[in-house]
Structures are given as structure tokens and as C-alpha cells.
């Protein structure tokens, strides 16, 4: 019996016991003929819908990492084509946390940007506890996941922050420039980011324009204050990236990992996110000057190859 019926019965009992009817009962009483019909039709609660078929191959008790990727690549666990996503994908692999990748877009993310991770839920009751974890908080979450094992230590080198800014600042600028602002690579952007969103040419045109203008603002924002306010200088960006690569190669030297660590850490993941994609010929670069620069510094190529062999 549903709640409505129970309430109605309760109202009826009250009618019998107390002669004074409230104004509610007078106006909102269901006419007897209608009530007879209602009594004969019980309310049906349908069972929950099955999840869509395409999610069936994903084990529900696994961590799900939502990144920019394609269906087939997600099934094979291939690297994402977005450096921001690939960094965390690689880091989770370094830390030995099992996860499945799911293709997604920025619109799906609670924070507005990929990647994010849905931790594995244990049983139906844990659903409310399965809050998604945004990219920036993944590191802390990873640390909580492995309480019994030894914590991964941060490298103690004093230059860590300085070199991290080379990757996050100079390489990122050059990446944005090469991918979004170099017209030769427009076909690649179209295949990776625009075509999956819409097939309408007008919508595609708008998305292309938005991507290009947001890349331009990002680059202008990271310009030094001494630069003129609305000029994107290719020489300056690529020269900066070349310097950065040389500095990073010098830092790596003959060590397997950065800062003389025994196992790769988040710095290696952050760099690999760019080097892997720049060295990947299968991605379909039309013009890849950064890749050419990168191949000249052997240490970084070796670093990238090693991670790819072991983890992907």
C-alpha cells in the first residue's frame, strides 16, 4: 500500500471519529466514483532501469577516471591526448592504483575541467560517499588510498619548484601555441576536440573559434609584463620551450628519473604528459617543431620511452 492510500485511510478514520469536518476534507475530498476507480488501480513502482549497455563492460567496482580519449583507446587503456589528463593517468599508474578510463568532456565534470575520478563504490549504500575527485585533489586522494604501504616521498631537492614551473609554464605555453594557434595543426584539433562535440558545421566553427581564442588568452596571460599586451610571439614561445627542454635534459642527466628518485613521481608524470604526445607520430601532427626539438635532447626521449614501455 502506498503512502497516499494510507493517508486517505487515515483521513477516513478521522471522518468517522469526529463529526466536525475540517475545511480541507470538504474541498479536497475525492468524489466516490473516482475513488472507486483509484482503489482499483494500485500505484506501481517500476524497478530501476538497467545502466546503458555501453557501460556494461566497465566493472562497477573499479575506479573510473574520466579523461579526454576515444572509446577504443579507453578500452585499451591508451594514453589520453590531453596533457592535463595524461599527467594524472600516468601518476595513478605510477602509484599502482587500478582504474578504468572513460571518455568524457569538460561539461561532464563537476569542477568544469577534466580529469576527475569516481572512486570505486563498495555496495549500493556507498553511492552517496562516491563523490567525484577533481584533478587537483587526486594527489591527496592517492595518498589516502595506500595507508599501509609506504608513502611516496616528495623529492627534497631545493630546485623542484623552479623546474616544475618550466613544465607547467613554458612547455604548456608552447603546447598551446603549437596545437591551437598553428593553423597547420587545425585538422588535428578538429579531430581530437571539435568533431566529437558536434557534427554541425556552424557549431564546429564556433567551437574552433572558442578554442583558439581561449588558447590565445592563456598564452597572453602567461606573457611577461614586459611584452606588449596583444602580441603572441612565436620565436619567444618556441625559444622558451627549447631552453626549458635543454634545462630539463641537463637536470635529468643519466639518471633514470628526475631528482635522483628511485621510482618515478609526479614530476616525471607531468613531463611525460607532454613528451609522450609530442613524440607520438600516430597522433597526426601536421607540424611538430616541439617534437623535433625534443628528439635533439636524447635524455628526455629515453625518459619518455621508458615510461611508455613499462606503463602503457
Amino acid at each position: 500500500m502506498t503512502d497516499d492510500d494510507a493517508q486517505h485511510d487515515g483521513a477516513k478514520q478521522r471522518d468517522d471519529s469526529s463529526p466536525a469536518k475540517s475545511i480541507f476534507d470538504v474541498f479536497f475530498r475525492i468524489p466516490p466514483p473516482l475513488k472507486r476507480i483509484f482503489d482499483q488501480t494500485p500505484l506501481i513502482t517500476y524497478p530501476e532501469n538497467e545502466p546503458p549497455l555501453r557501460t556494461a563492460n566497465i566493472e562497477r567496482n573499479n575506479n573510473l577516471l574520466y579523461i579526454f580519449t576515444t572509446d577504443t583507446e579507453a578500452r585499451n587503456g591508451r594514453p589520453s591526448f590531453n596533457p592535463g589528463c595524461l599527467k594524472w593517468q600516468t601518476y595513478l599508474k605510477f602509484e599502482g592504483i587500478p582504474f578504468c578510463t572513460v571518455p568524457s568532456t569538460n561539461h561532464a565534470s563537476p569542477s568544469g575541467a577534466l580529469p576527475f575520478l569516481l572512486p570505486a563504490g563498495r555496495g549500493q549504500d556507498a553511492r552517496s560517499a562516491r563523490d567525484p575527485i577533481a584533478g587537483g585533489k587526486l594527489k591527496r586522494w592517492t595518498a589516502t588510498q595506500k595507508e599501509n604501504k609506504e608513502k611516496s616521498r616528495e623529492p627534497e631537492d631545493v630546485r623542484y619548484e623552479a623546474y616544475a614551473s618550466l613544465v607547467d609554464h613554458r612547455l604548456r605555453r608552447a603546447w598551446l601555441y603549437q596545437l591551437y594557434l598553428n593553423p597547420a595543426n587545425h585538422a588535428l584539433v578538429h579531430r581530437l576536440y571539435i568533431a566529437p562535440c558536434s557534427s554541425n558545421p556552424f557549431v564546429q566553427l564556433t567551437i574552433a573559434h572558442q578554442l583558439r581564442s581561449s588558447a590565445t588568452t592563456e598564452i597572453l596571460k602567461s606573457n611577461t609584463t614586459s611584452a606588449a599586451s596583444n602580441i603572441v610571439d612565436e620565436d619567444e614561445i618556441l625559444g622558451g620551450a627549447r631552453e626549458a627542454m635543454e634545462a630539463l635534459a641537463e637536470l635529468l642527466g643519466d639518471n633514470p628519473w628526475f631528482f635522483g628518485q628511485e621510482k618515478p613521481g609526479i614530476f616525471d608524470a607531468g613531463l611525460f604528459a607532454y613528451t609522450e604526445l609530442l613524440l607520438d607520430d600516430g597522433l597526426g601532427w601536421a607540424e611538430n617543431r616541439l617534437g623535433v626539438m625534443l628528439r635533439q635532447s636524447g635524455g628526455l626521449v629515453r625518459h619518455s620511452d621508458k615510461i611508455r614501455e613499462v606503463h602503457f
Binding site: H169, R170, A247
Partner: peptide, 18 residues
């Protein structure tokens, strides 16, 4: 000669101090 540390520090100053 350009030192790697100098390049890294320059980038660090620009991105963090600004």
C-alpha cells in the same frame, strides 16, 4: 653559458612572483 638552473629560476620568478 646558460645554466639550466637559471632558466628554471627565471621561469619560476615569472610564473610565481608576478
Amino acid at each position: 653559458p646558460k645554466f639550466g638552473d637559471d632558466i628554471a629560476l627565471t621561469s619560476f620568478l615569472h610564473s610565481t612572483a608576478q
